[in-house]
Structures are given as C-alpha cells and as structure tokens.
C-alpha cells in the first residue's frame, strides 16, 4: 500500500520531468513523423488496398524503437548519477525497488502516450475500410510490451554510466542484437551453422519472433511472458548494478 504511494510519487516526478525538458516533445514529434512516413511511403498503406495496420504500420515498430527507446531510457539513471541526485533518492525513505519501478513505469507510460498519439492512423484505417480492431488492439499491446523490453534494457545501460551517450550506444547495440537474431537472414545463418533446433532457440530470444504474433492479432501468453520476464530480469539487473555503486 505504502510502497505504491512511493512508486506513484517517483513516477509522477519522472513524468513531469520528461515534459519539462524538450526531449519529450522532440521524441513524440520524431516518432509520429516516422510512423506517418513509413506507413504511407514505405509500408504502401494505400497500394495494399487492405484495411489493416500490421504490415504497413506495426511492421516498423521494432526498428523505430531500436533508436528511439534507448534515447528515452538513457537519462533515467545516468542523469541521477551525473547530477548527484541519486544520493538524495537513495537516502529518502524508499526502497531501491520502489525507485526503479517508479522510474521505469513513468518512462513506459510516456511511451504509451507516444504510441496512443498514433490514433489518427487507426481512425484513417477505420474510415477507409473495415479492419479487425481486435487485431489492431493486440498489435498495439504487443508494441507497447516490446517497447517496455527495450526500455528495461536501456535502464540497465543507464545505471552503468554517468554519460547518457554511452548508455544510448550500449543499449542500441544490445537491442540491435536482440532484434537482428530474429530476422530471416540471421535465422538462416544460424540454421546452416548450428542446425534448425539451435537456430530456433537463438531466434526465440529475439524481440522480432515474439512481436510477429501480436502484429497478426494473436496474443500468445508465451509472448507476453517473454516480454514481461525480460523486463523483470532487466530491472533486477538494474537493482544489482545500483547496489554495487553503493558498496
């Protein structure tokens, strides 16, 4: 009960801080521009002639997030360490977990806001045809879960350094690896190298393989579990790193 109040307080502060800096607006504008451009020009939204968003819109999300989410997450802990506010935060009557969860939830909520602002696309597709809104909802949910996984990894890299740039680059590399091992080319490569079973095992660590289902409208509990456990594991790692700084 009390811990939720603390988590909420931390999250509120973090979210307000996002909107105090230009970062939030820059991020949202770039994200929306990318969504619009890619959906209509590279996703052949009109040319397809099908009322759906999976191939034209959600298809690009893993690639947008690769660059955008590490930028959202990079300041979470690096900035606290650089400015010294980490010392304030850790001497307040809250547990490190409440701080970690509060900050993570604030950023995740911020990503949810950015994602929700793509609603004109949803309106457009409903205006033009009769899409399956259940599928679209599932894809939005999957996209948000995936964004959370990217974000949790950015939390780890942000806790490791005082420099936001370092956090950004390391998070980008790690996320790129987790993304690329799921692409067709990489899977083919692993198949030739280690055999089909191993290739599938490696591929199952990818964001891509777990997101595909969502974008087709399938909410598979294993995919949900994958993203949630990746988030849980990353936040745990963050807590270990933060604890190490204090020893």
């Amino acid at each position: 009960m009390n811990s939720w109040v603390n988590i909420k307080t931390i999250a509120k502060r973090e979210l307000v801080a996002y909107f105090m800096s230009p970062l939030a607006y820059v991020f949202i504008v770039i994200f929306l521009l990318l969504c619009g451009t890619f959906t209509f020009f590279f996703g052949y939204f009109y040319e397809r002639g099908v009322a759906e968003l999976g191939q034209s819109f959600f298809f690009w999300h893993p690639w947008f997030y690769l660059f955008l989410v590490p930028a959202v997450g990079m300041r979470l802990w690096a900035e606290e360490r650089r400015v010294g506010t980490l010392e304030l935060l850790m001497t307040m009557p809250i547990t490190p977990w409440q701080a970690i969860l509060g900050k993570f939830l604030a950023s995740w909520l911020f990503l949810a806001i950015a994602l929700a602002l793509t609603f004109p696309l949803w309106i457009t597709v409903n205006y033009l045809g009769n899409p399956d809104n259940g599928v679209i909802f599932a894809a939005y949910l999957g996209s948000w879960l995936m964004a959370g996984a990217y974000l949790a990894i950015s939390c780890i890299t942000s806790a490791m350094t005082r420099a936001q740039v370092v956090s950004f680059i390391v998070a980008l590399v790690v996320c790129a690896l987790l993304l690329l091992v799921g692409t067709g080319g990489a899977l083919e490569f692993f198949k030739n190298l280690f055999g089909a079973g191993m290739a599938e095992a490696i591929g199952s660590f990818s964001f891509l393989t777990h997101f595909v289902g969502f974008s087709k409208g399938v909410i598979d509990s294993r995919d949900v579990l994958f993203f949630l456990s990746l988030i849980g594991f990353s936040l745990f790692t963050t807590s270990v790193i933060l604890r190490e700084h204090r020893h």
Binding site: R13, V16, A17, M20, V83, T85, L88, T91, M92, P93
Partner: peptide, 29 residues
C-alpha cells in the same frame, strides 16, 4: 531514513523541475 534530513555535498537537486515542484516531491516522498 524517515528520521533524517540530508544535504549532500554540492547540494544536488533535480534540474528539470521548478523549486516548488522539487520541494513538493520531497514532501510527498
């Protein structure tokens, strides 16, 4: 920690908040 107030060296404060917002946060926590 509940019993303590602490002013760290170099007096860090959240730069992306107003003074009122920062103190409000400190009070809430």
């Amino acid at each position: 920690k509940r019993l303590m107030g602490y002013l760290p060296e170099n007096a860090p404060a959240y730069t992306d908040m107003t003074v009122q917002g920062f103190l409000g946060f400190a009070a809430e926590i």
